[in-house]
Nucleic acid binder design. Structure first.
Length: 808
DNA sequence: AGCACGCCGACT
DNA sequence: GTCGGCGTGCTC
């Protein structure tokens, strides 16, 4: 069932469907009196239910299972591992038109004699309605049949073979058509041509157009002339073409085209691997032979893509298919272009920006084994692969693989490893900054660690310099947020016509707006967070619920006019930069400035053409911006990256700094990174400067071990939310006490108020569970399930929203 | 999710 | 007296 409900539902298989039905097929089932849902056959058994009578399956929607068995295993694993209902994964996995709900259409069976005498009133109504209009959906039936009787009526008529269920997709789906042009056959026949051309003498433009189409058509008989071609190639107008069409000299016709764009061009052959890449490649091959998956740790611009391509090719040579996962499809044009060039039509994309029809089409193609390579975001994991040989997870550390705010929660990197296991295929996790968890797995031998420590073509890695900002301020060598040194380097870079990147990971202008005399700060009325001041849009914004407010001119509490702005946001950095470099083109890239349509594309072009001189951005700039003339990366307030309330703060800071640094000097090898900090002796910064990758992971792992965090323990977070604070509080206390009954106290942190006590008017309390790894984990998890079941027994707590996050 | 059932307030 | 508010429970 595509619903967030516990477990599965049992239905009776009607006699006539017994032969047909298979696990993994979609079936139409009645649910809750008058609803019809598309369920998926999860299990076929003959255990008689004791507590209820099973309803009958109405019909089967597929001729062959829409889901391979491996996918069902995968769903089941996700559901038990992440403690989310399997229906949630069903909902997440399927394009909505494949899980039609009451939108299901009915139609009369063709060539059927209907004997009206045996029908009851409702059945009669429905038949009559169908005689008037060929198709009708379940929602529309509500207009003339009592809700409770709808399912019964439909069932009876299906049994009588008078009506049948129509697959909505088959009807609504239409392949996209493209217009083509051709010269009228009659014109070419009988030597009409000179006469025609003469007739066009008074319309030279039309004549040119006619000749263009003719010549293009004769150039290659097998390649039809696209309508769009005449507007792209020649400078012709629609009216000129229209005249030719009216004179019947040119004909327009339509051809079906696959909705999905696929590249038609030359196929590129792979360049030879460098020695280093070759060695890495051998390691991967060897590892795959032993059935060990690979963590490919390749510094920025080391040619990971090249290795991917190598293995994609090998996989295809072995008649198997490839799934290539990316964190976000839009930000990685380079890889896509390379793959498109090489694989053309056997390549497909799947991501959240596709329309539903496009998704269904990819589903069909994958299901029919027409696709060799599927490039997609994490929702591509759910496609019905038949013959998967390799999964590549690019930028495996990326947090887009595991968004906390999307339900159901799961980590696509880990899920990919599990899915590959069900398909008996291999995995390459690739990153310039692997997650600490993956690195640890590699250390433990669960993954093969393959390291590419040098950039492609011997290009040097950027040099890292730490600027002691405290000292600079003491010596009065600074202005605002910038030390003279940083300003100087920026200036140099600008003079050399090179581009610079500045990273500042805080949106808005000022983090807090505070009254100097009474200390009042502007809190969001829905959430327990301060509102951030956005000078550009002149408003206060809550980054949690999106609420907006005007900035107070005087303190609403004490009416003082001394309103202070504290906590430097990116807009303020932009303002300062603008003052320091009034002549330069400075562009800001953050969620707020990229909200407009094509904002990203425009900026991309601006950087590519060299128009943009300084690009200032939040963590967004760490992805996809691979341009040759970026030489300098500066992080003026690097400390702010470290001090966030998150045990992964240092890891994230390292990843962000390294990823952004990777944008510098990709071909010149003269990239410079400037990290401005009050703590130049901080281990994370010094290890980054020394480029001591092994050291930094050692540091992270030591810290995690010391404070008991992943990968040394498993984390499960239980959050309870309610509109009333006391109720959420009491519920969390109770849950805590139940958990204490079953689990050792050192495993349980809390219950306590969540770090953000209120979001969107819901008060949040939480219990954090730190569980041992290994065999005991499952035992402990079962005990947690037992505790949660006990919690659920209290009816008073049923109104509490409960969310469980495993491995966040 | 959606919908029925049921228990309390402001209406003709 | 009743209509309807939404809090609560159930769906094979």
């Amino acid at each position: 069932m595509p619903l967030n409900l516990k477990g599965t539902f049992t239905y009776k298989i009607p006699e006539e469907l017994l032969q047909e039905i298979q696990i993994g097929m979609r079936v139409l089932v009645p649910f809750g009196g008058k609803k019809i849902y598309t369920g998926i056959v999860f299990e076929i058994h003959n255990r008689q239910p004791e507590t209820f009578t099973a309803k009958e399956i109405i019909s089967i929607l597929d001729e062959k299972p829409i889901l391979p068995e491996a996918q069902l295993h995968f769903w089941n694993w996700l559901s038990t591992y992440y403690l989310q209902n399997i229906g949630e994964f069903y909902r997440f996995a399927f394009p909505s038109s494949l899980k039609l709900e009451s939108e299901t259409y009915l139609k009369l069976k063709p060539n059927t004699e209907i004997n009206f005498e045996n029908l009851d009133v409702n059945e009669m109504y429905l038949i009559q309605a169908l005689e008037v209009r060929q198709m009708i959906n379940v929602t529309e039936i509500e207009a003339f049949i009592p809700k409770k009787l709808i399912v019964k009526t439909i069932n009876a008529l299906i049994d009588l073979q008078y009506i049948e269920v129509d697959e909505k997709i088959a009807e609504k789906y239409k392949a996209k058509e493209i217009s083509y042009l051709k010269v009228n056959q009659d014109v070419l026949r009988d030597n009409f041509l000179p006469e025609v051309l003469k007739s066009l003498d008074k319309a030279p433009k039309q004549k040119d157009l006619f000749l263009l189409i003719l010549s293009k058509q004769q150039e290659n008989e097998n390649q039809p002339v696209k309508k769009s071609f005449v507007f792209e190639e020649g400078n012709f107008s629609h009216s000129q073409l229209k005249s030719l069409l009216e004179k019947n000299l040119i004909e327009e016709y339509l051809l079906q085209k696959d909705r999905l764009e696929s590249f038609e061009g030359e196929i590129e052959t792979l360049e030879k691997l460098t020695d280093l890449q070759f060695a890495a490649n051998e390691e991967i091959n060897l590892s795959f032979k032993q059935n060990i998956n690979v963590l490919l740790h390749g510094v920025t611009a080391s040619g990971k893509t090249h290795l991917y391509l190598e293995h994609i090719q090998e996989c295809i040579n072995n008649e198997k298919n490839v799934l290539f996962l990316l964190p976000e499809i839009s930000l990685t044009k380079q890889i896509i272009q390379r793959l498109e060039k090489k694989y053309g039509k056997s390549l497909c994309f799947y991501h959240t920006k596709l329309t539903d029809f496009e998704r269904v089409e990819v589903w069909r193609k994958v299901r029919n084994n027409e696709i060799k390579i599927l490039i997609g975001t994490r929702n591509a994991l759910f496609l019905p692969f038949l013959n998967l040989g390799l999964i590549i997870v690019d930028e495996e550390h990326d947090f887009s693989y595991r968004p906390r705010e999307v339900s159901p929660y799961f980590n696509a990197k880990d899920a990919a490893l599990v899915l590959a296991n069900f398909y008996k295929s291999h995995v390459i996790l690739g990153s310039a900054t692997p997650s600490v968890e993956s690195f640890y797995l590699a250390e433990k031998g669960k993954l093969k660690y393959v390291f590419l420590g040098k950039r492609f073509g011997g290009v040097a890695l950027p040099t890292v310099e730490l600027i002691n900002f405290e000292e600079a301020q003491k010596l009065q060598q600074s202005k605002g947020q910038f030390s003279f040194k940083l300003i100087e380097k920026l200036k140099e870079n600008l003079e050399q016509k090179k581009q610079s990147i500045i990273l500042h990971n805080r949106r808005g202008y000022a983090h807090v707006v505070e009254c100097e005399s009474c200390g009042y700060v502007n809190y969001c009325s829905n959430c327990d967070v301060v509102m951030t001041y956005h000078k550009y849009s002149r408003e206060m914004k809550c980054h949690y619920c999106g609420q907006k407010a005007t900035k107070p001119a005087i303190c609403p509490k004490c009416h003082s006019e001394k309103i202070n702005e504290r906590g430097v946001g990116i807009e303020q950095i932009e303002e300062e930069l603008q003052k320091l470099f009034p002549e330069s083109e400075i562009d800001r890239m953050d969620v707020d400035s990229m909200r407009k349509k094509f904002a990203y594309e425009k900026l991309y072009e601006k950087i590519e053409s060299g128009e943009a001189e300084i690009i200032l951005g939040t963590q967004m700039i760490s992805k996809g911006l691979d341009f040759d003339s970026i030489e300098l990366v500066a992080i003026p307030k690097a400390d702010s990256l470290l001090y966030t309330q998150d045990f992964r703060a240092e890891e994230k800071a390292y990843q962000l700094i390294t990823q952004v640094s990777g944008r510098a000097g990709r071909t010149s090898g003269e990239g410079k990174i400037l990290i401005q900090t009050y703590n130049p002796q901080h281990q994370v910064f010094t290890l980054i400067r020394e480029n001591d990758t092994a050291g930094i992971y050692k540091h992270f792992l030591e810290e995690r071990k010391k404070f008991l965090y992943p990968p040394f323990v498993k984390l499960i977070l239980i959050e309870l939310k309610h509109r009333r604070e006391d109720k959420a509080d009491r519920a969390s206390q109770f849950l805590g006490s139940v958990l204490h009954k079953y689990l050792p106290p050192e495993c349980i942190l809390g219950p306590e108020k969540s770090p953000i006590g209120k979001v969107r008017n819901l008060y949040q309390f939480q219990v954090l569970l730190k569980l041992p790894k290994g065999k005991n984990y499952q035992i402990y998890k079962d005990l947690i399930l037992k505790s949660l079941a006990e919690f659920d027994e209290i009816t008073g707590y049923h109104s509490i929203k409960k969310s469980i996050t495993v491995d966040f």
